[in-house]
Design a binder for these strands. Structure first.
Lengths: 239, 239
DNA sequence: CAACGTATGGCACTCAGTTCCCTCTGTAAA
DNA sequence: TTTACAGAGGGAACTGAGTGCCATACGTTG
């Protein structure tokens, strides 16, 4: 709203980056993203056009001003994670960390969500951002599972699952207009992933590499059922 | 290479779309994507600048000239899919359908892969394409699972898993330079997803359709016996 | 005061993508 | 044959994002 903030009675200049992001977001809400030019933004912010591109590499970046720092936070979180804990839990927690950035400013997040939903350019941009999170999670899992068979494959699939579940929970919260508890929604969604892929899952989910625990049975059609069952039983018993 | 093809002794004009796509791809390989302007492309193709944008909405589209039709194929496939078959199997098969487009032109696919890997703009574009496949798969699963609890969540997570596994297999094949069997690589990757999310969720997999009288059954240790038997029975019955 | 690094403004340029309008060509009706 | 029409392609001019280059202003340190 105002370009300067009152702090202890002294005028303190708001950082240009925030001034620009705020001016841009206002205009995007008023006229739409595509109907707003960079010249419009810098005019409202009262700065030169060149300054915009000094702080944001593209017009789209002004819509997600905090994603770089969020990515950095996630990097730090994963680097600090203990190798003792379940790897799936770690990446789920890392995803929740992103969520917190959203849930801190519900109104802003909801408005941005609406904007992003209806502007193809912003959807694409968001995709590329989300992809970076996913790659980071996959990288962490891959490193944790270097020894496991198909570790790389599992890492990518689990990372994709975590991101999908996180986004599902997040979007359901955003669609509700930011009412209710975002962490709850995402936690509930991630529970499915934790249960399915987590190392400490209940009996349904196999721990570690499946190769060892998989039994392949070949039978011919027409074979007597009792013989089939007999073989299945013995296979499952002592593998 | 040539703008006209000899057919039955008569000159037949190659369709402009292909002429443009080929000219564009050649130039992208020679000078790189960003160092090639649309003017360069139309100059080589010997057509007017305006024509390029008649056939491709953006420069990026010229790199993926067949994705729209591939998407249409997938739509048709999903619409024609039987409600009897395992929903997860259906979407896995739909993913393999995309793979076929790649494996039909290995050299082209490998060159494009290298190009896409090193041009950020193309990576982002590809992401938006892949996202459309994912949404389509998720839509199919959601519709199949309307009754299930958390059906929507499961649909999105499974779709993301399928896409991640597919891409893992595809990329490993592309990195190998197009040697070996792409279908094999992707099948192996998708096996993890089928096993984990298939409706015989505790491990039973559908029989191989190819062989007439041999049934292969995969089960995990610890799976409840009744489910295994149920699965065997149905496999032997209508396999 | 001078010298220097940093933050910002201004200008001109490239290039993607769009708008509007033109020509050419083949076809069907009069 | 002439006319009318439709559809494919060509082309000029425009908008707007993003970049490169240089000038200017300000604060710091010598």
């Amino acid at each position: 709203m105002s370009e300067a903030r009152e702090v202890n009675g002294a005028q303190k200049k708001a950082p240009m980056r925030e001034v620009l992001a705020e001016a841009a977001f206002q205009l995007f809400l008023e006229r739409g993203f595509e109907r707003t030019t960079v010249d419009d933004i810098v005019a409202r912010a009262g700065v030169g056009r060149r300054s915009f591109f000094r702080y944001f590499p593209s017009k789209e970046d002004a819509v997600f001003p905090d994603h770089e720092s969020c990515l950095a936070d996630m990097t730090a979180f994963l680097e600090a994670a203990s190798d003792e804990s379940d790897a799936v839990d770690v990446v789920c927690d890392a995803a929740c960390l992103v969520l917190r950035v959203y849930s801190t400013n519900p109104e802003f997040s909801v408005q941005r969500y609406k904007l992003t939903r209806e502007v193809p350019g912003l959807r694409t941009y968001e995709l590329s951002v989300v992809r970076r999170y996913e790659r980071m999670l996959a990288g962490y899992l891959r490193q944790r599972w270097v020894e496991a068979t198909d570790g790389s494959l599992r890492a990518e699939v689990v990372a994709a699952s975590v991101v999908a579940a996180h986004n599902n929970g997040l979007r359901s919260w955003l669609r509700s207009g930011g009412e209710g508890d975002a962490e709850d929604a995402v936690d509930r969604a991630l529970r499915l992933v934790r249960r399915t892929w987590g190392e400490g899952g209940d009996g349904a989910a196999a721990p570690e590499p499946q190769q060892e625990d998989v039994v392949v049975m070949v039978a011919t059609k027409g074979a007597p059922m009792w013989r089939v069952i007999q073989r299945v039983e013995s296979a499952l018993r002592d593998g």
